[in-house]
């Protein structure tokens, strides 16, 4: 039997002087921050300022691009995840990701959600059933699909597909969930549902979410990090990170204030 893990207090990141270079172009540099466990951290900033790049450092998906080089130190609960001995495949079972566009696999809803656990070698039907139900419940989709688990995931609406993807990421029981503009391709109602889901999820996982939507960041996050790239010749950097409420009411940096009040970006 698989027991419900709650990883409470686990899933904190510490970044020290992180930079990422694509070929000869340094996209982000000098990023140092702490990411709190069981909280929602929003990454905001104008398009092209390296939010996705920074996010992909946390599960080492940058490794897969082939042209990205990551420097600096990134610790997950004190362990350097870029250590030579550290296996990125193992990291990704602890740090899941939801992408910008819903990308369910071309298979049934059940098989989509069970993919991660099966990858980890879980074969017992009752274990898989329990994981699928729990993950879909946490993604707020169980009620809608419990009778249709054998349905092809492509038959669902965009919002439902994205929640299948959230359930799929949750099924490996990660400590951290990375979300890269998860609602940007969805209609307002689906967006609302995803936001509600996120609020409930932080009980189980640490969430780092990229969004270009200020109101969304203000609504759903506990911490906000603001990134900026001032010119194409220079890499992007972290302007500041702090309590979301403070960032939106009383930002410490003029550039944050300018961005939040919509003067650029």
């Amino acid at each position: 039997m698989v027991t419900a893990q709650s990883h409470a207090g686990k899933g904190s990141f510490d970044l020290h002087d992180v930079s990422v270079t694509y070929g000869s172009e340094t996209a982000i540099a000098g990023v140092s921050m702490h990411i709190e466990p069981n909280a929602v951290t929003a990454l905001i900033g104008p398009s092209g300022c390296g939010k996705s790049t920074l996010l992909r450092c946390l599960n080492r998906m940058n490794d897969e691009l082939g042209n990205a080089k990551v420097a600096g130190r990134i610790l997950l609960d004190g362990v350097d995840v870029y250590d030579k001995e550290y296996d990125p495949v193992e990291l990704r079972t602890k740090v899941g990701q939801v992408f910008q566009k819903p990308n369910p696999f071309p298979m049934t809803i059940y098989d989509n959600v069970a993919y991660g656990p099966r990858t980890q070698g879980i074969r017992k039907r009752s274990d898989l059933d329990a994981l699928v139900e729990r993950s879909l419940t946490r993604a707020a989709l169980w009620g809608e699909v419990k009778k249709d688990l054998k349905k092809h995931a492509f038959e669902l609406s965009g919002g439902q597909q994205q929640r299948v993807c959230i359930a799929r990421a949750l099924a490996t029981e990660p400590e951290v969930l990375l979300m890269d503009e998860p609602a940007s391709s969805l209609d307002p109602i689906s967006t609302q549902q995803i936001e509600d889901t996120i609020a409930e999820l932080k009980e189980y996982v640490t969430i780092v979410i990229v969004t270009h939507n200020m109101q969304q960041a203000a609504r759903i996050s506990d911490k906000t990090a603001f990134m900026l790239r001032e010119s194409m010749e220079e890499p992007a950097f972290l302007v500041e990170v702090g309590e979301t409420r403070t960032m939106f009411t009383n930002p410490g940096d003029k550039r944050t204030e300018a961005y939040i009040t919509g003067r650029f970006g």
Partner: peptide, 9 residues
């Protein structure tokens, strides 16, 4: 990407 991000080789 989705598969790799789930810890698949």
């Amino acid at each position: 990407q989705a598969s790799l991000a789930l810890g698949a080789t």
